[in-house]
Amino acid sequence: MIRNVDIVRPRDLEQALDMRAELGEQGLPVAGGTDVIVELRGQRISGKTLVDLSRVEALKGITEGDDGILVGALTTHEEASGSALLLDRATALAQACGEVGSLQIRNRGTLGGNVANASPCADGLTALIGLAGIALVASTTGEREVSVEDLIERPYRTGLGPDEIIVGFRIPRSAAGARSHFVKLGRRDALAISRINAACLIETDGATVSACQLAVGSVMPRTERVREAEAAVEGAPASGETARLAGEAVSRRMIEMSGVRWSTPYKEPAVGAVVKRAVLGAMGLGDETTGAGLI
């Protein structure tokens, strides 16, 4: 029993947006509840009116359009991890969603919630940013598109307005032959929050990498693309050595951002190895494991 909370249950998106606009800061969207209910129970959030989005059909489904794949905000992690379309065209996202929590949590937790919660350790978030995903955001005054990377401002804080709802995500169409891969390192296989995660998308031209997108989570204040590492990979041969250099570039960036900490002697090589595996996987050279607990 959670005290000091109320709930409204919109039937469709229009009603949801109206309720969100009316409630403003008082309102808190909830979908699967796997983050929100824990926060409410710990009384870190209180006095809110939950806007239950779970009946809003317009937020469901995974479809392919002209400009990419559309993933509804209510897509559960389990649905995403089993989606043939995502496994084929946005592999890193399906892999990341399959690594979240336990089956019970994957059956309830949604991708929209994963992004809106903005945990620096969120697996789905890393994959969406690595795939250059765009968040589709709506309010009563209209819709806007914002890159998922730019939507996250700091840990547990997004740039969503108090009247806005994430409708879904668009994953831009990538070149034929592009491949993506996600790797997570947790303290154990199941129910482990990521210590380090990475998602990489690579396009190759023969034996050379023509484009690279690389996002790393859990090791910096917010999940982001690491441009220095991407630059080190682009134009280089698709090889283990290139992947190793990408890992080193990310380790350097981590230390630059977070300084040398007690955990650095562990994290520096571990980050390098996780990134190397993600890059190798996206090159089609690595083993197929997503790597939890392997290092």
Binding site: I7, V30, G32, G33, T34, I37, V38, L50, D52, L103, Q104, I105, N107, R108
Partner: peptide, 8 residues
């Protein structure tokens, strides 16, 4: 399968 403690 869901955790009933996390479903309103």
């Amino acid at each position: 399968a869901v955790n009933s403690c996390m479903v309103l």
